[in-house]
Computed example of a mutant assay.
Amino acid sequence: MAKGVANELLGLNDPAPFGLFNAAGASPFLLIGDHAGAAIPEALGDLGLCDADRRRHIAIDIGVHGLGHRLAERLDAPFLHQIYSRLVIDCNRNPARDDAIPVVSDGSRISGNEGLNEAARAVRVAAIHAPYHQAISERIDARRAAGRDTILLSLHSFTPVMGGIARPWEVGVLHWLGCTHFAHAMLAALRDTAALTVGDNVPYAMDATDFTVPFHAFPRDLAYAEIEVRQDLITSVEGRMLWADHLAQAAKDALQRIS
């Protein structure tokens, strides 16, 4: 998509579509956060949402922004994360899917997403989705060209209750196709911490609805893991620091298991 099309959405006061922390991180890990941000371009107003909805899990993976930064420090890894809300466009969905720009999410109507034509959808893809994924691809390819391995760690968070059903897991490790050995090793490493309740492909299972890991890791034969942490555990600074410690230790242990 031409740069001019992207500029139809993002104005001078809007942030860039992705953030990059610790770009020079020397470890094999590359951290990504598809839903770490909650920004909405000025041109889209509030998408018809109240303040409370813009702070809910429907708009952002609560806690992931801070968790990703702390984990990047502990692993000496880059953290490349989305700035804009998943309700503007979901960067973990194929942009051709209807749910990439949802009109309803967990009971909340997103009136600003209703009735979009293909041109309006294409503008959001060009401004936000495409540059985010281009940045991930360029970083992976540059590492490969420099002879560096990459293990893709995708960070997400999940609600303690969904549809009235409590979710007892504190953390889940998601995996599907491709090089799953690291994901299985990280699952085992987390389960070795007896105090944690760890889910294997729960509360979500990676499948064809996911976009980021399948798009970047599968065709390049990259080791990967998608990590889901329960949101109530990482709402505080202290919680994010504790879970950065848990995940850093598990990632390092998993790396040793597969070496």
Rank of each mutant, 00 (worst) to 15 (best):
A23G: 12
R167E: 04
P17C: 03
D221S: 14
G63W: 01
G11H: 05
N22C: 09
N94T: 12
V125R: 09
R220N: 03
T159A: 12
A26E: 10
E118T: 15
L80T: 01
L75W: 04
A2F: 07
S27Y: 05
D53A: 14
V125F: 13
H175I: 03
F211A: 05
A130L: 14
V173L: 09
D99L: 10
M206L: 13
A208K: 14
A135H: 09
I101K: 03
C50H: 06
H133S: 07
V237R: 08
E226K: 06
H35G: 04
A217M: 07
D46H: 05
A135K: 10
L177Q: 15
S157Q: 02
R257I: 01
L49V: 02
G48L: 03
D210I: 06
D99A: 12
M241D: 12
I234H: 00
S154P: 02
D141T: 15
D210V: 07
P219W: 05
G25S: 09
G172N: 01
L71W: 04
M206K: 06
A120Q: 15
F18R: 03
R86W: 06
D207R: 11
C50M: 09
V88Y: 04
P78I: 02
M206W: 07
I32T: 13
G178F: 08
A208S: 14
I151S: 10
A185Y: 04
A43Y: 04
D51G: 00
P214M: 09
D99P: 09
F29P: 01
R139M: 15
H81I: 01
Q231V: 00
A217L: 08
K3P: 05
